[in-house]
Amino acid sequence: MWHACLFRSAVLVILLLPLTACAWFPPEREAAYELLASWGGKGDAPGRFNEPTGIAVAGGEVFVSDARNGRIQVFDFDGRFLRQIGSAGEEPGKLGRPMNLAIARGELYVADYWNDRIEVFSLAGEYRRSIGTSGTGPGQFNAPGGVAVGKEGDLFVADFYNQRVQHLRPDGRFVRQWGETGRTGWTAGRFSYPTDVALGADGTLYVADGYNDRIQVFAPDGTFLRKWGGPFALNIHGPFRGWFATVTSVAVGPRGNIFVADFYNDRVQKFSAEGRFLTAFGSTPRGPAHSAIAVAVASDGSVFVANFDAHRVERWQQPAGGP
């Protein structure tokens, strides 16, 4: 009896092995992206960066978080410097460590990791308002890493050290949260240092669950839908396709595909909305830092990447069709 059971289990494992191999080591399903242009280099002059950490695109312009310089820089798609937004400091309208960015309703939203707030500017650079304060209470932040904005102006914030994602009204009033405040977890709906968030056109919420090495997805009503990243998306990191090693940014492309900055693997990975691996691309770093830290996708399919190691911005494109 015992031997028969063991035999059945062994047969089952052997039969399932090719299936799991397909799921955990997927093939490349799309053509590779090509690096079209890059600009920057280390420095504090206009057009140079000291640790770029966030990126967003809108209306033919690229907005870049220039973290150690405490500013946002704006460029055209060819890398020509256009203007600076914000400057280093702690007062409202000033920036500590700007991280992932969002652009919505004609405004720029900056997750300020050091000042524990979301700073809002016009796209021309005029300071509009600050949302949130330091703390662990509803509507407060402990190092916000990324922000997304819904159609009605509601905010979704990756609240890094509070181990949660908060949903807030446009004026900062708390609506709800995912995750348990201040406690990491690896089960569905729990986080380990969430770094960024993005919204699909239908309001689906994608969370870069940073140190859990996975993406988690929630329906517009807040219910958990799915997760992906390595075997069972249970914080098993690795260099393989569809696996991650610290997820630092997530963006939704114009066709609903999901682009993920896979920082320690120095690449951006592209998935379908359901989490099916499509392709990956990135630049090899000089080290010891890593390259792909933030990603944004333009309406023409161009993918913009903040290269942390090289202090540069990169523009990638797929030769045979967009995302």
Binding site: A143, Y193, Y264
Partner: peptide, 12 residues
């Protein structure tokens, strides 16, 4: 330390 989310957190 190579990840700025880590380094900035310690620095902060």
């Amino acid at each position: 330390l190579a990840c700025p989310f880590c380094a900035y957190g310690i620095e902060k």
